[in-house]
Write a protein that binds this DNA or RNA. Structure first.
Lengths: 155, 155
DNA sequence: TATTGTTATACTCTATAACTATA
DNA sequence: TATAGTTATAGAGTATAACAATA
């Protein structure tokens, strides 16, 4: 049983968790392939996208939705705030909370980075046909209990 | 446009990369939910599983297959070696390389941890039916260019 | 009492480059 | 020259606990 250069994946190939792990790594390899070092990593990108889609979102809601720990979220939001990308406000009905909204500069930054990223990604969904890609996304949304995007929504 | 507790995912819901990212986070949440702190994280688990399925696998082949950087792989393998979980050997045909094989202790460790993990995972594939789960895994394997496991293979 | 955000700490993982020994 | 593994370093991400303000 000499080791081939293409190893056998064995139990990994039947494990949803590990398939998702490997697929995610491959996706982000392809994602940021062209660019050297992108301005924002996947975590920060997802935060900007969520604030854009949900103005005045509360920091805790955001953290739960993206499965980012509150302590980590604080540091990221503070850096966004220092960079002038987000505007924060304290809601009157709960003065412990923080509401987050993108500034015009934040929207610009997002548009610029996301445009580059989404073009990369949409260009090549691995080895899948368009139909398979759609099915894959649909099943992932169902797995995550995430609603399908609106008709005609931008990717 | 007040922020609801269930935010809108917007562009994220159409991005394969971000769906994979969120799904992976959810999968490992469910994975290691019952246990407090598992003995091995996802990265280390995947390495043990791959060595188990590919005795005498070379360290570099392993690193490429799992998309783990060589420098990081070195540290993990060294810790496995110190813990007596893997046995290393230098192949005659290329004395730069390292061949890795699980020791009996390594196999025991893997069996014990994996059994707990795979039971957790197989118990609940999110909100998907069995058929949807199978389709999802099949599409992920195709996306990754990974061969389907052998018939009747253990999960 | 519980929750929101914060601070601090530690650990894992990643990214990079330089080094060695082999090829 | 190129490759396999190593070493060292820095940074990103994560996990945890304790704390202040507020509910």
């Amino acid at each position: 049983m000499a080791a081939p250069d293409q190893p056998i994946f064995g139990a990994l190939a039947e494990s949803l968790g590990f398939l998702l792990r490997l697929a995610q790594l491959q996706a982000f390899d392809e994602y940021f392939s062209a660019e050297g070092s992108p301005e924002h990593g996947p975590g920060e990108m997802s935060i900007l996208l969520m604030i854009d889609a949900n103005p005045m979102i509360r920091q805790g809601v955001l953290a739960r939705a993206l499965r980012i720990k509150r302590a980590h979220m604080t540091k990221i939001i503070q850096s966004f705030d220092r960079a002038g990308l987000v505007q924060t406000s304290v809601p009157a009905d709960d003065r412990r909370s923080l509401e987050l909204t993108l500034t015009p500069a934040g929207k610009d930054r997002l548009a610029r980075v996301w445009d580059r990223v989404s073009l990369n990604e949409l260009g090549r969904p691995g080895n899948l046909t368009q139909r398979e890609t759609d099915t894959l996304k649909r099943l992932l949304r169902k797995y995550l209990s995430i609603a399908a995007p609106a008709e005609g929504a931008d990717a």
